[in-house]
Nucleic acid binder design. Structure first.
Lengths: 134, 134
DNA sequence: ATTACTGCAAATACTTTGCAATTGT
DNA sequence: ACAATTGCAAAGTATTTGCAGTAAT
């Protein structure tokens, strides 16, 4: 069985068809979809799917460490199934979010404590304009 | 006259009492207020102030380079009158946003182009728990 | 059998918009 | 005088919540 399914179960969540569908949709997906993107992509195949379930599922996946939540724009959250530390670039023209190689000095372990602040994750975003839009 | 007032005018915006009040409120403010924080702080003194005006003003200040917008949480934007490059730490317990000294290697100029992406600003956020909450 | 999850609808929160009256230049 | 801004109310969008029915363990 899919190892991500397993991990979700091991984290204490039930494995439902909706959750499997979301996991499958996100697998290898580098488009950094928002809730609505996930919903519209899956509702054709699962017509009864509701947005609330997508919110619930995404929440579970984040808690299980299978997904990271990105706060990049003011209007909505985006999600990244690649939970390895890396940076993002946001094109203010077209709205696309690109993956960027993180700097070697930026691994979680190395910044786990700054002063008296305990760091659990780091997010770096470059705001600007991508090559297609320049 | 206040140099920030001047800069706002030079950027082509009109100098209204509401805008001056917002500029004054933000001066030296390190609490990273959201729109509603600004609104509730000023509406006592200016009872006719509306939230739409605060949105409008904040927009003008960002465009004039007097304020930077922070996308840190999913629910709202926060604003920082310190436009010099620096990082932020967000306490997931109490919700406070702390200023962190930026790394020397992170100035705008040095990252102005990455690959074929033209960078106009960078934002780095540490998510975790502050000392008061630990 | 128990407990968590789904889907729906309503509610909440943030932000944007349209417009008439007002104000800065 | 002109053009931008204000304040209000309504609309738009993202997200959360309550709950009855359903499904996973």
């Amino acid at each position: 069985m899919n190892e991500k399914y397993q991990k979700l179960k091991r984290s204490g969540f039930k494995l439902t068809p909706q959750r499997m569908a979301v996991i499958d949709f996100l697998e290898g997906n580098t488009s950094h979809p928002a809730i609505n993107d996930i919903y519209t992509a899956l509702v054709r195949k699962y017509p009864s799917l509701s947005r609330a379930t997508v919110y619930n599922t995404v929440d579970a996946l984040v808690k299980a460490g299978l997904l990271s939540e990105l706060a990049i724009t003011k209007d909505k959250s985006n999600y990244d199934p690649n939970v390895n530390p890396h940076d993002h670039a946001y094109c203010m023209q077209c709205g696309k979010i690109y993956d960027m190689p993180g700097q070697k000095t930026e691994t979680k372990e190395q910044v786990s404590v700054i002063g008296d602040f305990k760091v659990t994750s780091v997010q770096r975003v470059y705001y600007g304009c991508c090559s297609k839009c320049s």
